[in-house]
Simulated assay, not measured.
Amino acid sequence: MIRKSIILTKISEIEESVNLIDDNLPETFEEFRGLGLVRDGMYRRLEFAVENVFDICSILNSDLKLGVPGSDGDVLENLLGAGIIDEETFRKVKAMRGFRNIVVHRYGKIDDRITFRILREHLRDFHEFTEKIRKTLETLENK
């Protein structure tokens, strides 16, 4: 049995975080750099969104009994192998995890210019992920 309500709640949390980032993300890097606490809030919301993506992946892995993973990477491999996610989604989610680790663990100093570019170019990856998961839930429900 799939814990659909929990997954849908996490999708809503992802969408809320991504929309808040998108609504407050300025057009230029110079404006972004000057945001101070708002910029820090964007980092935190991004971290929260990525954590929810991995929570969803872990729930699906568990509920579909795809195996006991040793890491987030194993969860993604299991979902890919079961056809729950495709190769493109696998790559994007793996990149999300890598970026989240940089933000959370502050490996070196975070380059705001790179972060700004990532936010401008990859926020839509979250929307693509949530849409794919919604479709997956529908498909699984109809089986």
Rank of each mutant, 00 (worst) to 15 (best):
S17K: 00
D111V: 09
R3F: 01
R120Q: 15
N78H: 12
K132C: 04
G41H: 00
M42G: 01
I11M: 01
L80E: 05
N19G: 06
T115G: 14
V38E: 15
S5N: 11
R91K: 13
E141W: 01
L37A: 15
G34Q: 13
R106G: 12
C57S: 13
M1D: 11
T115F: 11
A49V: 00
T115D: 14
K92E: 12
R124V: 09
E30T: 05
G67H: 09
N61H: 03
L8N: 04
M42C: 04
R106K: 11
I118Q: 15
E16L: 03
E30Y: 05
C57Q: 05
V68F: 04
S58T: 03
I102S: 14
V104E: 12
I6V: 09
E128V: 10
D55M: 02
E47C: 14
T115H: 10
R106F: 07
D40C: 10
N24A: 12
F116T: 02
K65Y: 01
T139A: 12
G81M: 08
I14T: 00
L35G: 09
S62F: 01
F99V: 13
D74N: 12
E87I: 02
K10W: 00
F129T: 04
K132F: 00
D72V: 08
E141N: 05
N101C: 11
I21K: 04
I21H: 02
G108S: 11
I133L: 02
G34D: 15
G81R: 07
S17G: 04
V18E: 05
K92S: 10
L80H: 04
E138I: 00
H122C: 11
P26C: 14
K10H: 02
F99D: 14
K109H: 07
N24F: 00
F48Q: 02
E88L: 04
E141G: 06
E31W: 03
D22R: 13
E51I: 01
I59V: 10
K4A: 09
K143M: 10
I84T: 11
V93T: 09
G81D: 12
E138S: 07
E13M: 02
V93N: 06
S12V: 00
S17C: 08
D111R: 11
V38H: 09
L80C: 02
R33P: 11
I21S: 11
T136R: 12
D72F: 13
E88M: 02
D63I: 03
R120L: 08
I102Y: 06
D86L: 04
K92H: 05
V53H: 03
I133Q: 03
L35I: 04
R39V: 02
D22E: 14
A82M: 08
R39G: 11
E15M: 02
K109W: 01
D86V: 01
V93R: 03
L66E: 07
L60D: 10
L66M: 07
T115V: 15
R113F: 07
L37N: 15
I2Q: 12
L76E: 09
K4R: 11
L140W: 09
I102G: 13
I59Y: 06
L79I: 04
T9P: 03
F90D: 10
T136A: 15
L46F: 06
L37I: 12
E88S: 07
